[in-house]
Design a protein around this nucleic acid. Structure first.
Length: 884
RNA sequence: AGGCGCGUAGCUCAGUGGGAGAGCGCUACAUUGACACUGUAGAGGUCGGCAGUUCAAUCCUGCCCGCGCCUACCA
């Protein structure tokens, strides 16, 4: 690559002109992971984005955190693998393609399955992977040569192996259960694909007449329902077993309104006595709770709503057949009213499920599907959480993870889609299920001599997408081929980074699958982050249209600015309310860094070897800066190790801006002007240390600057800074604080005297620290833009008293001392308050007896300092008052 | 109904059992050869409320008020 030169560094950092070549570099020559390197491996698999998805802020956030960890580990000597890839996202993708077809006046059924799947692949080739290119613009250092897709050959084999194995273990079965049915896309949905929303509805009270005459004078039992159109599938009326109101009715039969059918009154503890009338109609085929009650009581489960969400079947009076469910409700209610069975209607909020993709209300429907009952796997995963084999960060989410594993129900894994992994199950003419053999899962039964001559038909359905993404941490690494070098070296992976919102759906499933198939944990740490909300605190979503385009932000501010902003605000899985000012902060910070490096280059040149004298620093500022660098290195490294990227970012932000730029660079200017080699070395050392600490967060600008500084290899492959204890210098840190306090005091004098920054101030120092200041004269004079005077001012002077130092600035009497006096009096009041507070504490014997010695000692020190300051201010005020 | 989180400067947010911070905004001054995406000096907060524990509470405990999220078989 062409090297940048110091002279060519613009005075303002322009991300657009820098990032492009690095994006290209990292895409064409990715950071490849070598399973044979012998270095300790460190692996993170990407939470696979939807193949036809676009980068949104959630992805940007997630991948920033992942890449920061990966880049840091790589520099720390690990063989770091950032495993990239995509998910086929069954229904989401299929719905998109079906929409495109509809625009052409086609649908998948007229096209036929084979042609449709071809269209799907064509779509995938065209739009799939766009998001990977977008991630590259974020600067993600994934090993792009290993990009995987859930429907790749190898990963498909993994899915098939999973199914066949679980089937033969008896964990997978085919049966009828209540599923979330999407009448628009004609498929079942996972809970994740259903959005729950509260909607205004009605609660209807219906009278079911008792057969065989009144009991205790009651002719009917009144039930409460929000779905009167389902009464035709009723199989019972249930009451609570301990409900005295209905005890006498249990065992009797009641007649369903508008029909000739009667059903029994049963007792079940699932009924809430307080709700409605305390009596519940049981419709096992159209409600999850009813299904479960029906199971307990051996009720049959007739269906009256079909897959188009219309009433159908013999049980439905002919007048209502074929009517859509909501239309039917109105008509049925009218008929009920007519018949006198409708006793009451009141407003009632109902929680309704909507298909995330089609926005249509989901119908709970009894359906013959494939189910996976993962209770054994869940038990193992729970054990892992209890034993700490898998750790969640923040820790409190462990409980959420556990809760979900404990309450698992059989998971519906089949989907009535054409896009996905076809279920490897066949049926013979008698309806017997034939699944490939356990020891040869990839041979279709149609190729198996044992079934020669049998007419086998394959199940038309495909698997739920989660039934492949649960294998992601190892299917991407080669499993089921356990001899794959990547699987052997990089599995188990290390950290999983994802939003807490898919802890249930994805994380828990990966945990279960990993123990089931690899016998080990899939990762040791789950790092959960919050969600990116819009400025009003609402979740961003396509339907709300409140999303923010990360690419547009990258165009305007640069990828580093976005990354830095994201890392900076990540704390403890708190949601992030979007605020563009933070990206501005990132941009400004990157520009600051750029300019600090530009200055350094002007001083030391762009030849890496030119200044390499391994001298111990001698100047106070050099000693201070290098000592601070050690502390910052230790802190940043520690924060990264603790997965606290927010703290890491904030720590280094302060180090760069408030220490390196504001103080060190300014203090270094005077020696640099003299050509001081020691300072040149220190300057370059400090900058390069900071650049390396920063690289994982802001890879573009640091790569560019590293190159400009004359290094051959990229900074992404440079070694992480190590703490050098020999450079730890507490004396220098303390002395520099003294210097800093003196400089600030002098600047305050300048402001109070209304002197322009350009004007050099004659300053006289007295007090215990005066000799120290004399020793650091060059730095003080340069930083304060002052000249230290040997003799005290003869005439009127403004003074700035500190505990161990008083600075005096002569003034000509034109200056209004009122402002100065006001400020000093305020400081005096503060010093007095401080002194009396400390005195009060120290006079409290319980404080002295109970508080740690160090705290008491600190309090004494404070008190002494407050006294000294108070005395100095008093004396200053007297002198000015008495001045001519 | 249960669980979790949040309430700190005008705004967006960090933070800790021992005199509260950042970014932006605000006031004043400044273009001294790194940087106006800047510098210097400032103003601004009874850390949601009430009790309790403690020598010491913004931080721990309890209750209350407000906001948000997630689970759940209230039809």
């Amino acid at each position: 690559m062409e090297s940048a030169h110091a002279a060519s560094l613009a005075s303002r950092y322009d991300p657009a002109s820098v990032e492009g070549r690095w994006v290209q570099e990292w895409a064409e020559r990715p950071f490849r992971a070598d399973p044979e390197s012998g270095k300790p491996p460190f692996t993170i698999v990407i939470p696979p984005p939807n193949v036809t998805g676009d980068l949104h802020l959630g992805h940007a956030f997630d991948n920033t955190l992942i890449d920061t960890l990966i880049r840091a580990k790589r520099m720390q000597g690990f063989e770091a693998l950032f495993q990239p890839g995509m998910d086929h996202a069954g229904i989401a993708t299929q719905v998109q393609v079906e929409r495109a077809l509809a625009a052409e006046g086609l649908d998948r059924h007229t096209l036929g399955r084979e042609a449709f799947v071809e269209r799907m692949w064509a779509w995938k080739e065209r739009y799939g992977g766009v998001i990977l290119g977008q991630l590259q613009r974020l600067g993600v250092s994934a090993d792009w040569s290993r990009t995987r897709f859930t429907m790749d050959e190898g990963l498909s084999q993994a899915v098939r192996t999973q199914f066949v194995e679980l089937y033969h273990r008896g964990a997978i079965f085919r049966g009828e259960r209540i599923v979330n049915w999407d009448p628009a896309s004609q498929t079942t949905l996972s809970e994740l694909e259903v959005d729950r929303e509260d909607r205004p509805g009605k609660l209807y009270t219906l009278a079911y007449t008792l057969e065989g005459g009144p009991v205790d004078g009651r002719e009917a039992i009144e039930i409460a329902t929000v779905r009167p159109e389902t009464i035709f599938a009723d199989q019972a009326v249930a009451v609570h077993p301990e409900d005295d109101r209905y005890a006498a009715l249990v065992g009797r039969r009641v007649r369903i309104p508008l029909t000739d059918r009667s059903v029994p009154v049963i007792a079940d503890a699932a009924v809430e006595r307080e709700f409605g009338t305390g009596a519940l109609k049981i419709t096992p085929a159209h409600d999850q709770t009813d299904f479960e009650i029906g199971e307990r009581h051996g009720l049959s489960r007739p269906t009256v709503i079909d897959t188009d969400a219309c009433l159908f079947g013999e049980l439905v009076p002919e007048a209502f057949r074929g009517m859509e469910r909501f239309a039917a409700r109105e008509v049925v209610v009218a008929a009920l009213e007519e018949s006198g069975a409708l006793r009451a209607v009141r407003d009632h909020t109902v929680s309704l499920g909507f298909s995330q993709r089609t926005k249509v209300p989901v119908e709970p429907l009894l359906s013959l599907q494939w189910f996976y009952d993962p209770k054994d796997a869940a038990a193992r995963a729970l054990q892992a959480l209890d034993d700490g084999e898998i750790r969640l960060v923040p820790e409190r989410y462990t409980k959420v993870n556990r809760d979900w594993l404990e309450r698992l129900r059989p998971w519906n894994v089949s989907r009535q889609l054409w896009w996905g992994h076809r279920i490897p199950a066949w049926y013979d003419p008698d309806g017997n299920v034939i699944v490939p053999a356990r020891d040869d899962p990839h041979r279709d039964p149609t190729d198996d001599p044992r079934y020669a001559g049998v007419a086998l038909t394959q199940d038309p359905d495909v698997f739920d997408t989660w039934f492949s993404s649960n294998l992601w941490p190892f299917s991407t690494l080669g499993w089921p081929d356990e001899s794959d070098p990547f699987f052997r070296t990089f599995y188990p992976t290390d950290v999983l980074v994802t939003g807490y919102d898919i802890l249930f759906f994805w994380v828990a499933r990966m945990e279960m699958a990993a123990y089931e198939f690899t016998g080990t944990r899939p990762f040791h740490t789950v790092l959960l982050h919050g969600l990116v909300l819009d400025a009003e605190g609402q979740k961003m979503s396509k339907s709300r249209g409140n999303g923010i385009d990360p690419l547009e932000l990258i165009d305007r501010y640069g990828a580093d600015a976005l990354r830095f902003a994201m890392a900076h605000v990540s704390t403890g899985a708190q949601d992030i309310r979007w605020d563009e000012r933070r990206v501005e902060m990132g941009r400004n910070f990157v520009n600051k860094l750029w300019n600090a490096a530009r200055f350094t280059l002007m001083q030391v040149g762009g030849d890496a070897e030119a200044v390499s004298v391994p001298a111990r620093p001698t100047h106070l500022a050099d000693r201070w800066m290098l000592s601070r660098l050690q502390a910052v290195t230790r802190e940043v490294t520690g924060h990264l190790d603790a997965y606290d990227l927010g703290l890491a970012a904030r720590t280094i932000y302060d180090a760069v801006w408030s220490e390196f730029c504001d103080w060190y660079l300014e203090a270094a200017k005077a020696p640099l002007k003299r050509g001081d080699d020691g300072t040149k070395v220190a300057l370059k050392t400090a900058l390069e240390g900071l650049l390396r600490l920063l690289h994982p967060l802001v890879p573009f600008v640091t790569s560019e600057l590293w190159e400009a500084l004359g290094h051959d290899g990229q900074i992404g492959l440079a070694a992480w800074p190590e703490v050098d204890p020999a450079l730890h210098d507490p004396d220098a840190e303390r002395d520099f604080e003294r210097l800093r306090a003196a400089v600030i005091a002098a600047r305050q004098l300048r402001a109070e005297a209304n002197l322009s920054p350009a004007q050099v101030m004659p300053i006289h120092a007295s007090g215990d620290d005066a000799a120290f200041l004399e020793r650091e004269r060059e730095a003080f004079e340069s930083l304060a833009r002052a000249t230290l005077q040997a003799a005290p001012p003869t005439g009127a002077a403004l003074t700035q008293p500190l505990p161990a130092l008083t600075l005096a600035l002569p003034f000509d009497g034109i200056v209004d001392v009122g402002e100065w006096r006001g400020r000093q009096e305020k400081r005096l009041a503060e010093a007095r308050a401080e002194r009396s507070r400390s005195a009060g504490k120290l006079a409290n014997e319980r404080f002295v007896a109970n508080a740690p010695e160090s705290v008491v000692e600190e309090e004494r020190r404070r008190m002494g300092e407050a006294e000294a300051l108070e005395a100095a201010i008093v004396s200053s005020l007297e002198r000015v008052t008495s001045a001519p």
